[in-house]
C-alpha cells in the first residue's frame, strides 16, 4: 500500500523559528500556487503553481521545488524541542495550502501523528465539501483571511469575489477546532474604520470565533515583483501608522472580539 507521506507537493520555502502564525515557535511551509491575486501580496512568487525564476540580490534564483510530505515532515520535526517548550508547531502558508489538497492534508496528518500542533493560513477559497472538509480533522487552528465584505471591491483587489469565502468562513467556524479571522490592513483597500467594522461585525457573527488579527500592510514583497519582472501596483501606498492601527483595533473591539495587531 502506498504510504500517504509519499504524496508529492510543490513548495517554495520552509521558514523556521517563526513566531506569529499560530501559537509558539513554528515552522512555516510555503506551498506554491494560489487562487487569488492580491495586489499587496508579499509573496508574489507563490502565486503561480509553476516553477519560476526570480532575481534575488542580483542573482537568478529558482522558486519552487517538488518534495514529498514525508521529506517536509522530517524538516518540521527538527524543531520539535522548540515546539515542546512554546506550544508551537507546523503552519501551512503559501500561496494557498488549499491549492494542493492531497499534499497538504498528508503533511498535516503526518504532523498530527507526530503530535505536532498544526495551523494553516488560508484564503478559504475552495469547495468546502470536497476540499476544506478534508483538512479539518488534522488542523488545530485555521487562520483565515477576510479581506473585504464588499464583493466587488474584493474582486478588484484580489481577482476573486468573496461570496464563497464568507460562506466557507461560516462552515469552518462551525466545524473546525479553532478559527481566527485575519485582516490584512491595506491602505486604499480596506483601511477605513467602516470597512474594518464591517469585517469585525461579520467575524463576531461566526460561531466560536473570538479573535481577530489586524495585519498592517508592509512592503516586504515589493522588490520581489521587480525580481519577477512584474509591476508592483501599490507603489503609491505606505504602511499604516501605529496610531491608525490602534484606532482600527478599538473599532473592531466594539464587536466583542479579542483584537490583536500583527498576527
Amino acid at each position: 500500500m502506498e504510504n500517504y507521506l509519499d504524496t508529492k507537493g510543490r513548495i517554495f520555502d520552509i521558514q523556521r523559528f517563526s513566531v506569529h502564525d499560530g501559537p509558539g515557535v513554528r515552522t512555516i511551509v510555503f506551498l506554491k500556487g494560489c487562487f487569488l491575486r492580491c495586489k499587496w501580496c508579499c509573496n508574489p512568487e507563490s502565486q503561480s503553481k509553476k516553477i519560476e525564476t526570480m532575481v534575488v540580490a542580483g542573482k537568478e534564483k529558482t522558486i519552487g521545488y517538488d518534495v514529498t510530505a514525508g521529506e517536509v515532515l522530517e524538516k518540521v520535526k527538527q524543531d520539535r524541542p522548540y515546539y515542546r517548550r512554546s506550544g508551537g508547531g507546523l503552519t501551512l502558508s503559501g500561496g494557498e495550502a488549499l491549492f494542493q489538497p492531497d499534499f497538504a492534508v498528508a503533511l498535516l496528518r503526518g504532523a498530527k501523528e507526530n503530535a505536532i500542533n498544526t495551523a494553516m493560513e488560508t484564503t478559504g477559497f475552495a469547495d468546502f465539501d470536497t476540499v476544506i472538509k478534508r483538512y479539518i480533522p488534522y488542523l488545530d487552528l485555521f487562520l483565515m483571511d477576510i479581506k473585504h465584505i464588499n464583493s466587488d471591491k474584493h474582486k478588484e483587489f484580489t481577482g476573486q469575489p468573496n461570496e464563497l469565502i464568507l460562506e466557507n468562513a461560516r462552515k469552518i467556524a462551525r466545524e473546525a477546532k479553532k478559527l481566527i479571522i485575519r485582516v490584512p490592513v491595506i491602505p486604499t483597500f480596506n483601511d477605513t474604520v467602516e470597512e474594518i467594522e464591517a469585517i469585525a461585525e461579520f467575524a463576531s457573527s461566526l460561531v466560536n470565533v473570538t479573535e481577530l488579527h489586524l495585519l498592517p500592510y508592509h512592503r516586504l514583497g515589493k522588490d520581489k515583483y521587480e525580481g519577477l519582472g512584474r509591476e508592483y501596483t501599490l507603489e503609491h501606498i505606505t504602511p499604516p501608522t501605529k496610531e491608525h492601527m490602534l484606532m482600527l483595533k478599538k473599532a473592531a473591539e466594539k464587536y466583542g472580539l479579542k483584537v490583536e495587531i500583527g498576527g
Partner: peptide, 19 residues
C-alpha cells in the same frame, strides 16, 4: 524581527532593512 516574525537580516530587501 520582521512584521511579526524573525528572519535573517541579510535576506530582506533593502527597503525592509531600512524600515
Amino acid at each position: 524581527r520582521v512584521a511579526g516574525y524573525s528572519a535573517l537580516f541579510t535576506t530582506l530587501s533593502k527597503s525592509l532593512q531600512d524600515d
